[in-house]
């Protein structure tokens, strides 16, 4: 039977990695989120070491007795996870850079629906209204949506991209 009691150092290290990882994941900036993801990933990789049980010799046949060897399978999994993480980190970095190119920052933007609801709440407007019936301002929900999609500036007043096509009432 494998000795399953984990080394205390590993457990503490995992805790530290996961805590700081989660903290950073909750940030707005993509770069911080990325660092958080890396820390969290490393914490989980260490968790695999705990899963493999007691540390032992290199698992090579003929290099000592089999009972002293460490379990190679979790190491293979960690290796796979590290490779995957590397690829994803490269992608997220590219995305953060692109975001910075486009917007001058790399912050994760709000969900569209959240924005729309916040905007409607601020105006105290009904959530749905029929633009066939009443739309004196010419500002249909859709024009607002189009405006919400423009995320370069929050404070801009809503400017409809064109005259709203009003379908006559059916």
């Amino acid at each position: 039977m494998i000795d399953t009691a984990p080394a205390l150092v590993l457990v503490i290290a995992i805790g530290a990695f996961v805590i700081s990882g989660v903290y950073l994941l909750l940030e707005r900036s993509l770069t911080r989120v990325l660092v958080g993801f890396i820390l969290l990933g490393n914490g989980i990789n260490l968790l695999f070491l705990v899963a493999s049980g007691r540390a032992g010799k290199a698992p090579i046949i003929g290099d000592g007795s089999e009972s002293e060897m460490s379990d190679p399978l979790p190491q293979a999994m960690v290796l796979t996870a590290i490779v995957i993480t590397l690829g994803l980190v490269a992608f997220v970095l590219a995305m953060a850079y692109r975001s910075w190119q486009l917007h001058g920052h790399d912050e994760v933007q709000d969900d569209l629906e959240d924005r729309r609801i916040a905007r409607l709440a601020a105006k105290n407007a009904p959530a749905v209204y029929d633009d066939d019936v009443d739309d004196a301002a010419g500002l249909s929900l859709d024009d607002q949506a189009a405006d919400v999609r423009d995320e370069t500036d929050d404070s801009e007043p809503a400017t409809p991209p064109g005259p709203a096509e009003e379908g006559p009432s059916s």
């Binding site: 994941l25 993509l30 989120v33 993801f37 992608f91 997220v92 995305m95 692109r98 975001s99 486009l102 994760v108 933007q109 969900d111 999609r149 995320e151």
Partner: peptide, 11 residues
């Protein structure tokens, strides 16, 4: 637009 939606999706 896609980078905005993409960051949420990826994270």
């Amino acid at each position: 637009e896609r980078i905005r939606a993409g960051s949420i999706y990826v994270i």
